[in-house]
C-alpha cells in the first residue's frame, strides 16, 4: 500500500486538504461548506495519510486521539447551546457579539460539528485499519 507516488502526492496534498477543510468550515455560514463538509475533507486527508504512511504515523500527525476529538466536539456544541442560557435566553439561541466579523455562538457550534465529524470518521478508519 505504500507506493512512492502515493507518499509524494500525500505530502503535497495533505496541507492543501487541511487548509481547504478549514476554509470550508469558516466560510460555511455564507457559502457552500460548513462543519460537515469541512470535517469530512480533513478526515479524508488523514485517511489518505494513513494509507500512505501507516496508521501510527497518521495518529501522530493528528496530534490528538480521534475519540477525544468526538468528545471535544460534542462539548463545544453543548457549550455553544449553554452560553445563551447564562444570559437568560433559551438553549441554543444564537449570540452574535460581532456579526460583522462572523463571530458568534453558531460558529462554535459548527466547530463542534467539525470536530465530531473528524473524530467519528478517523476513529472508524484508524481502528479498522489497525485490525
Amino acid at each position: 500500500m505504500t507506493s512512492l507516488i502515493l507518499r509524494t502526492a500525500t505530502r503535497v496534498l495533505m496541507p492543501l486538504l487541511l487548509l481547504y477543510g478549514l476554509f470550508l468550515l469558516l466560510r460555511g455560514h455564507n457559502a457552500p461548506g460548513g462543519g460537515f463538509a469541512g470535517g469530512l475533507v480533513v478526515a479524508a486527508a488523514y485517511s489518505l495519510n494513513a494509507f500512505a504512511f501507516g496508521i501510527p504515523a497518521a495518529r501522530r500527525a493528528l496530534l490528538v486521539d480521534p475519540t477525544r476529538l468526538i468528545g471535544t466536539g460534542l462539548l463545544l456544541a453543548l457549550l455553544s447551546g449553554a452560553l445563551p442560557v447564562l444570559f437568560g435566553k433559551a438553549f441554543l439561541t444564537a449570540l452574535w457579539p460581532a456579526p460583522a466579523l462572523g463571530l458568534g455562538s453558531p460558529l462554535i457550534f459548527d466547530v463542534g460539528v467539525f470536530c465530531v465529524v473528524i473524530g467519528v470518521v478517523l476513529t472508524m478508519t484508524f481502528t479498522l485499519g489497525e485490525e
Binding site: 465529524v117 470518521v121 472508524m124
Partner: peptide, 19 residues
Amino acid sequence: LTAIVIGFGVLAFALVLAH
C-alpha cells in the same frame, strides 16, 4: 445533508458489525 452523514455512520457501524 445530515442524512448523508448519519447514513455513513450507520453504514460503517453495520459494516464493522458484519465484520
